[in-house]
Design a protein around this nucleic acid. Structure first.
Lengths: 200, 200
DNA sequence: TTAGCTTATTCATATAGTTGACTATGGCAA
DNA sequence: TTGCCATAGTCAACTATATGAATAAGCTAA
């Protein structure tokens, strides 16, 4: 029952189809609340049943028809109550990469190399994501300075969460690069010696 | 089937009871893989059935007996295969606070105030967590410099993931403080004028 | 012209995660 | 001396999430 809040938050930007939400979750909410397409379609249906969103079918000529959902007044009220109400649940993270890093000492050089590769991949992904975020930021600012934007824009929520995403990815990249360095240094220091004997 | 990897990673530090794992997940793995006690007890039982962990009952005098689990050789092999194998799933985040921030423009000053309070709470929690991480770091280093530690310690995984936790919480704090500032500025700029009229 | 991609959605099944209550024991403080 | 907190765990029921496949249309490049 928390996904629906994220969905409603996304629908604040305007109407969207299940498919729209599924790919990128309107490219902003997805960064802090992931969901699979099936999850979204089902939740949207339920929400429609409860009157939180309303759907209208858009006939399309060269593609399948789609149902565009928008937030109803009732949905808006529920969302407002949620925002104003109780404390937010603490941030929940699930990160396989960290589990692997935690285990980096388990075997020999090959295992370290595998972890290294995984960290490098994360750094690449984060770099790409950061670049995308930066472009989104520029589009939002549209020439204005941050101060101007924050003082005059109608909505600042999406900008602030985007800042959150940027901070997260920056942190990821910095951490990852440090780890790569440190592990390379260590591998060099151990020089195939003790590490190799541990690899059995 | 991913929780078990986190559990095995935690058991690399040595044997632990379900209860030990539940409160703090050996105080390190929990930072990137949360699980409720029930989840852990159930998973440990299953893993025992599959021979990944073994349990021994420790009779206690002034407390209930406990079952201490440790990683078996089979478990170790499975964990190694996991670490070396396929790419890690991308980081999954669920953050209610971000959903609320995304919605900060939904109503009037009261709603903004609620979001502000939620962000402030997050900053406090993150500050406390960061302090705890710093203490853990000092304990790990035990007087050595980071370079010395990374070159000589038997295991560096837990240190590197701790660094990840530190980076994350630092990012959280910085972001949160920026948001608090920005929203306060904006509230002042709007000065109870337009914001109040939107509150209906 | 056929294989694969994108749009757009639905169905069924499997796995994972949450919630609340319940059993025990002992320590500590009001 | 009652009540709450910490240790240590179990059970049942529920909700949420993920996986895989199916359908159906048109577009594009080999």
């Amino acid at each position: 029952m928390a996904l629906r809040n994220a969905v409603m938050a996304a629908l604040l930007e305007g109407e969207a189809s299940g498919y729209d939400l599924a790919k990128g979750f309107e490219a902003s909410v997805a960064n802090f609340w992931m969901a699979t397409p099936q999850q979204l379609y089902r939740e949207l249906e339920r929400m429609e049943g409860e009157g939180l969103v309303s759907a209208r079918v858009v006939q399309q000529e060269r593609r399948p028809n789609k149902r565009l959902f928008s937030l109803t007044e009732a949905g808006r009220r529920v969302l407002r109550a949620y925002v104003a109400g109780g404390p937010a649940k603490p941030l929940a993270i699930r990160d396989e990469l960290m589990v692997k890093v935690q285990c980096v000492d388990i075997g020999g050089a090959e295992d370290v190399a595998a972890v290294l590769a995984a960290v490098a991949e994360r750094v690449e992904r984060s770099t790409a994501k950061l670049a995308r975020y930066r472009r989104m930021q520029e589009r939002m600012l549209a020439g204005r300075t941050e101060d101007e934007y924050l003082a005059t824009a109608e909505r600042v929520g999406p900008y602030l969460t985007l800042q959150g995403g940027i901070a997260l990815e920056k942190g990821n990249i910095q951490w990852g690069e440090t780890v790569l360095e440190r592990l390379a240094q260590r591998a060099a220091a151990l020089g195939g010696g003790p590490a190799a004997t541990l690899s059995g």
